[in-house]
Structures are given as structure tokens and as C-alpha cells.
Design a protein around this nucleic acid. Structure first.
Lengths: 342, 342
DNA sequence: CTGTTAGCGCATTCAT
DNA sequence: ATGAATGCGCTAACAG
């Protein structure tokens, strides 16, 4: 165990900046400067300080730093869920961008609930984070007010079809849905079905649905059948829901799913039921998950760059600690993957 | 925008405990007590204080609290990766247990690198977290020393086949591998193949492999063929690697995969290659992922309770803020899922 | 280039 | 049941 002098004589415990200063024979302030690389420091003193830090195994107390500077090296991250693989991928992007910085991610899960989100935002704000990353645009008024008053930078991810608080990063789900429809129509499909999950939680799925319908309408078509399941998307839900849809309406040419999880499930149903995918029934998803692309027939879908969204959010937020005058929108785009299922 | 008195007259900004005290006409100390529910407070003053808090929208500054009490409501979480679905599921368990508390998760990703881990541990410790949750037993000496000196509680997750720093929560991968082998042998399989991924990063996969080999040896058998791919596990890797294995050794009866991702890929290969799963070739995985269970033929595998591991870790850590005298091991167990692929 | 002086906002003694 | 005093460890002016 290390022994060193502290404020009041010899102590066992965690060394502080004071201990480093004493050992290096400089003022606390100088040590602080060395640590933060701020202001001019003579090479000789820098060396003495760094070796003192080394010797003591000094680690700055972030709470103290944060209190003194009223700002922290924390980035608040609010995710609606960790069950849907999409959000861990966003988080991966966030961490990847954070890795080259000193920032740490303070992560909260809202469970798709605006009130839960409000509580977490309040807790996060208590740490004076450098910025907050959230998902979507559904916040309570109280949440908006807290965010407004705190003046922290805020990124709202995934969607860009609304006015952001500060900066929005993602893609237009309405447009993605629309383009999916156009794409499938151009491939000759006319009799469309839709298989989806609960969209009271997942608003973006609904926007894609609306875009799809718009494209159909424009072409003088409509959905011949649709089936939605309560609860979140999953492979099993997709499998069962497609089965149900086909029972009611067997003469569908192509099914658009609310996302890839559902579509993969649909693929499995076709496999079990002996339905020739694409020849007899086209399948189309959304997200471009690995699992879909590793199917014996790669899923036809839309790639939504989740990793990029997370990564871009961090980069954009760290560009400036002040909110820009104009609300910003970053379109990370999407790509239609032809695949082999539609 | 709120206006209120602060230390030096009227101010715009975030209200502090001082502001609350002034508004409620009590001392700061009393406000602090009300907030933390400590000590006796007259009902009348409690009401005045809470309504003052309400009125100002006061949120305690955690950094200040942490500094004053040298402890925080933070829980450090170190995950090797977010790409492997297994870890988001652990994180989900952690968050689920944290949800009913005031604690927040400070999350870092090590990328399976002990030195990266060391850096993150150091950063986390700077926040004086209540506890730290890590994965596995591979840490640098420096990491161990830091953890030792800091005296924070430490949980090491996933594995229980080693001596933990404080508490280990997970399952015996060696035993799980062994039991998988016994199970398959009892089902009549004799000609075993193995398809795996890079285990310099994923040590637990190796332990399962060793357990499997031990079971085979005990039954007078050996692996007839094995094929490992560089890099992490994935469905595509599983698909391609099984293909390669079968090219070299077509007369295998059953293939054990390093995990479900790989096994699902193997299943897809069989589908494409027209190999009758189970009749002609048995497939066996590890983890019990949803995707495996939603296959047309549910994957035969072992369920490792990831969610439970994360959840249990938090519960155990919060039981006491002091390390127990004896290092603790919590076995969350595993269950062999019969499935339909072996 | 470096030291001095003041707090940051709260929790923790100790009083009363 | 409440208040007053003190300091946690650090950063931010301001000097020099």
C-alpha cells in the first residue's frame, strides 16, 4: 500500500492532486495544467509532474473536476431498448467514436416510455454531461424544458422527419418506406401485403408504412392485406404473422415487413410451408441486418446505417459545446439492397 | 426562464440547494436531509422544502454530492464488445436491475483487450463508482492493483472457472462443453466435428471446446474434424466454415459449433447444400439465442442465462458496499435445449 | 511560465 | 428537529 503525505500529514488512500504537487515540488495549479494540457508549461516541470503522477498512480477525481468546471467528460445516452439489435448497434457507433476521446457514456434505457425518459434525463443532467444523445422526437414537455434550461447539446437519433431540439441524425423513414414501395412496383409487383409489429412504441415503423402506402397510392395500388402483431418485432412474430396473413389472403405477390427481424421470420415460414420465396412470394424488410444477409437467399431490404448514426452523433456533438443557431439535420441515408427475396 | 436568488443576488441558471433552502426558509443542511431522507424532519418543513424543490425544478448536482461524500450513484460496466448479441443482453439485465434504483450505468467497451480495459477501469474509478462490473478474468496486473486499492466492489461476469477478485457470476463453460458432449454421445452420435471462431479473444469458447473434448475422450472418442475461422463469430462465418469442414471430412455425424451464431450459419449452409439436418448431420450450438429457436428446426443448443447474469450481478453488488471476506461465486447455470437439429 | 486566491454544490461533523 | 461550520479535489480567474 502506498504511503504519502496529504493535506494533513501522512495518509493511506487515494492520492490527490495536492499529493502530486507536493511530490513534484510545484503548485496544484501547475499539476492541473499539465494534466489538462492547458497553458504553457516548461518541459522540465512537465516531466517532474508526470513522473510524480506516475509514481503515485494518481488518477484525477472527475467529480471534483466536474464540480469546479461545471462540465463533465460524460455523454448521456438514452436508448429506447436493448432488445432490438438496432440500438446496440447505435451504441456501438457511439462507443467507437468515444473511444478516441476522454468521454464516457452514461447509458439509460427508456423502454419506449416518455415518462421514463424524463426521469432518466433528469438524472443524467445531474451529472452535467457534455451532451445528451436521445432517440426519436417523442419527449414530454418537461423533458424539453429541462433540456432547454440546461443548454446541453442534444442529438436526436434515427429519424429526421421532424424539427429537432438541437440536431437530428438519421434517415427519413417516410421516404425509405416510399422508396421501398417504388422499388417493388418497378420490379413488377402489384399485389402487396404488409406484416408489422406494434407501432405505438416504434413510431418509425409507422412512418415507413405510411411512405409505402403513399407510393402504392401514387401508382393506383393499395395494400391487399395487412397484419400487425401486438408487441415488439421478433423473428417468431414475423413467422407467425406472415402465416396468419397468408391464411386470410393467399394471393399476395410480395410482403413488406416492418423490419428485418420480422422478415427473417417470414422467410422461415416460407421455408417450413414450402413457399418458393421470390418466385411465389416476395419478401422485403428494413434495416439490412447481418442475419438477413446471411440467409440462403439474402434478404431484400433497406440498409439503415445504425453504426454510422451513433458515430456521427458523437462527432457532431463534439464539434462544438454550444448549440448552433440553426437546428441541424444530418441525413445518414439508406440504401436499397436488392437481395434475392424480392 | 426561471429567475431566482443565488449566492450573489439574482441569477439565471440552474438552481442549487442554496436556492431551495432560501426559498423554503430553512438551512441548506435541512434541504439536504429532506432529499436524502436522512435524519428526523418535521412534516411541515419537509412539505415546504419539497414544494420549493418542485417550484424551482431543482435537480441535485451529483458531482458535488459525489465529491462531498466520496461515493457516487454510478455503476461502472465493462463489456468486451457490443457486436456479439450476448453482451447487449447482459447489459439489458444490468439495466433492468438498475431501473428500480437511483444508480446509473457508466458503460465502457474493451474490445477484448486487457490494456484497453485497464484504461477504462482507470477512467471509471475516477468517478468513484459504487461498483464495477467486468467480463471474464483476463485483466492486467495494473488493473487488478487499481481495483484492489480502490476497494470498490467488483463483479466478474459470464464465467466461474477461476478465482474472482470479489464475486463471479455466470456458468462453468468447461462443464457446459462437457455436458454438451455427453448429451450428444447419449443420443448416439460418434463422429464429431467442431466449427469455431477465434478464441484468443473469446476464452470461454475455448473452455467449452476443452470440456467437449474431455467428454469425447472419456467415451473413447475424438473429434474427427475441426475447423476454426479467424475473427469473431458470425452467421456467415459459421456457414462458410461448416462448408469448408465438410469438404475436408464429409462423413461427420454431428457438428458442435462455438456458439449459436455459428450454428445458425451452419444451418443455412445445410439448407443451401440440401443436407438434411439431424437425419444426415446434427448441429449443436451454444447460448440459446432467439434466432436459433425461431429456425424452421429449433436449434439444439445450451441456454446460458445472459439476462439473469447481468441482473444478478447488480443485485449481488448492491447487497453490500463492502467486499465480503470470502470471494463469492454465483452459478447461474445453463440448460441443454433438445431442439430439432441434433 | 508559474503561484495565489477563491470558490464549485453538496454532505458531514458538531452544535443547539 | 434544525443550523453553522468545514472541506471534499479540483479549476479558474488573476497576479506576477
Amino acid at each position: 500500500m502506498l504511503v504519502f503525505k496529504s493535506g494533513k500529514g501522512f495518509m493511506y488512500g487515494v492520492p490527490t492532486l495536492t499529493d502530486v504537487a507536493r511530490l513534484a515540488g510545484v503548485s496544484e495549479n501547475t499539476v492541473s495544467r499539465v494534466i489538462r494540457n492547458k497553458g504553457p508549461i516548461a518541459d522540465s516541470t512537465r516531466t517532474r509532474v508526470t513522473s510524480a503522477i506516475e509514481e503515485l498512480g494518481y488518477v484525477p477525481n472527475r467529480a471534483a473536476g466536474s464540480l469546479a468546471s461545471s462540465g463533465s467528460m460524460l455523454m448521456g445516452v438514452l436508448l429506447p431498448s436493448l432488445s432490438n439489435i438496432v440500438f446496440p448497434e447505435v451504441l456501438r457507433g457511439i462507443h467507437s467514436a468515444l473511444a478516441s476521446t476522454e468521454y464516457q457514456a452514461l447509458v439509460g434505457v427508456t423502454d419506449y416510455d416518455a415518462l421514463t425518459e424524463q426521469g432518466i434525463v433528469s438524472s443524467l443532467l445531474a451529472w452535467k454531461p457534455a451532451a445528451i444523445i436521445m432517440t426519436g422526437f417523442d419527449h414530454t414537455d418537461a423533458t424539453r424544458r429541462m433540456l432547454e434550461n440546461s443548454r446541453v447539446r442534444v442529438a436526436e437519433l434515427m429519424d429526421i422527419d421532424a424539427e429537432p431540439i438541437d440536431i437530428a441524425i438519421g434517415l427519413s423513414h417516410r421516404k425509405a418506406g416510399y422508396d421501398s414501395g417504388r422499388h417493388l412496383i418497378s420490379r413488377g409487383y402489384r399485389r402487396f401485403g404488409y406484416v408489422g409489429h406494434d407501432w405505438t412504441a416504434d413510431r418509425r415503423a409507422r412512418k415507413r408504412y405510411e411512405g409505402l402506402c403513399a407510393a402504392l397510392l401514387e401508382a393506383g395500388l393499395t395494400l391487399k392485406a395487412e397484419q400487425r402483431v401486438d408487441g415488439p418485432s421478433s423473428t417468431i412474430a414475423g413467422r407467425d404473422t406472415l402465416a396468419r396473413l397468408l391464411t386470410k389472403k393467399p394471393d399476395i405477390e410480395v410482403v413488406v415487413f416492418s423490419n428485418d427481424d420480422m422478415a427473417v421470420g417470414g422467410f422461415f415460414h416460407c421455408l417450413s410451408a414450402g413457399i418458393a420465396v421470390k418466385e411465389k412470394l416476395g419478401l422485403f424488410g428494413f434495416n439490412g441486418l447481418d442475419i438477413g444477409q446471411s440467409l440462403p437467399a439474402p434478404l431484400s431490404t433497406v440498409r439503415s446505417n445504425r453504426f454510422l448514426i451513433g458515430q456521427t452523433a458523437v462527432e457532431k456533438l463534439l464539434e462544438s459545446s454550444e448549440r448552433p443557431l440553426e437546428r441541424q439535420i444530418v441525413d445518414t441515408g439508406y440504401v436499397i439492397i436488392e437481395g434475392a427475396t424480392a
